[in-house]
C-alpha cells in the first residue's frame, strides 16, 4: 500500500497527526484527560504543551509506553479490556479512544467504561461501511483490504469492525448522547457531509464522535 493509512500518519505543520489534531480540538484547556491506547503519547504531549491538560495514558505496547514515559508523560502499560475498570467514576473530563474500539474484546463494555470514568468520551474508528469495503467483498468475494484497513483477515487486530451506522445504533441502544460527530477521510481529515447520515456511512473512511451519558 502506498497510500497513507491510519497507521501511517500524516503530519501537519504543528507536528501532530491530522486525526489527532481533530481529537485535540475537542478538548477544553486545563481539563483532565485519559487517552486510552495513547501510543507514544503524541496527543498527550500536545495537549499538555498547548492546552495545559492534566493527562494520563494507557497503552498496550511496552515500547510505546517507554517512549511516552521518557517524554515525562503519565502513561502506564496495560490492557484496556481489563484495566479501565480500575479508574473511578468521573475521574476525567475526557476519555479518548482513538482508532482502537474495533480491536477491543468487548467494545460495548469499553464504551460504558469510557462514559463512566469520563464526562465525555471521544471515540474514533474506521468505517467498515465505506464503499470500497463493500465493493471488495461484493466483487472479489474476499475479506476487504483497503488503504484504511490493509491487514489480511488472519493477522488483523481488528476483531470488532463496524460501520458508522452500526456504531450509531449501539450508542442509541445505550442511551448515549452524541455531542458532536465528524466524518473523516483516510487521513483523518474532516469531510463535508454529516457524520450521522448515509453519505458518511458510504463515503467516509473514518468517523469521530464525542459522546456523553
Amino acid at each position: 500500500m502506498t497510500e497513507a493509512t491510519t497507521t501511517v500518519p500524516t503530519q501537519m505543520q504543528s507536528g501532530i497527526r491530522v486525526d489527532l489534531q481533530l481529537v485535540a480540538d475537542q478538548i477544553k484547556p486545563n481539563s483532565r484527560v485519559l487517552d486510552v491506547g495513547c501510543g507514544d503519547g503524541m496527543l498527550l504531549a500536545y495537549l499538555r504543551d498547548q492546552k495545559k491538560v492534566d493527562g494520563r495514558g494507557l497503552e498496550l505496547s511496552m515500547a510505546r509506553v517507554s517512549g511516552a514515559v521518557r517524554e515525562g508523560l503519565a502513561v502506564i502499560q496495560g490492557d484496556l479490556d481489563s484495566d479501565l475498570k480500575h479508574y473511578p467514576e468521573g475521574a476525567f473530563d475526557y476519555a479518548i479512544l482513538s482508532q482502537t474500539l474495533q480491536s477491543t474484546r468487548n467494545p460495548k463494555e469499553v464504551l460504558e467504561d469510557l462514559l463512566r470514568l469520563g464526562t465525555y468520551a471521544v471515540v474514533s474508528f474506521p468505517n467498515f461501511g465505506h464503499w470500497r469495503v463493500r465493493l471488495e467483498l461484493l466483487l472479489r468475494g474476499q475479506m476487504p483490504s483497503t488503504p484504511t484497513l490493509p491487514e489480511s483477515w488472519y493477522d488483523t487486530e481488528n476483531i470488532h469492525l463496524c460501520t458508522i451506522k452500526d456504531f450509531l445504533t449501539l450508542v442509541d441502544n445505550m442511551g448515549v448522547t452524541i455531542e458532536a460527530g465528524f466524518a473523516l477521510d483516510g487521513h483523518g481529515k474532516k469531510v463535508s457531509y454529516a457524520a450521522t447520515g448515509w453519505l458518511a456511512n458510504l463515503f467516509s473512511e473514518q468517523a469521530l464522535f464525542v459522546l456523553r451519558r
Binding site: R32, D54, R56, M62, V65, S66, A68, V69, L73, A74, V75, I76, Q77, G78, D83, H86, Y87, P88, A91, F92
Partner: peptide
Amino acid sequence: VHALNANAAKVSFVEI
C-alpha cells in the same frame, strides 16, 4: 498501578 489508578493518580509504569 491499579491502586493508583483507582485514585486517578499521576502514574507512569514500565516493565523493562
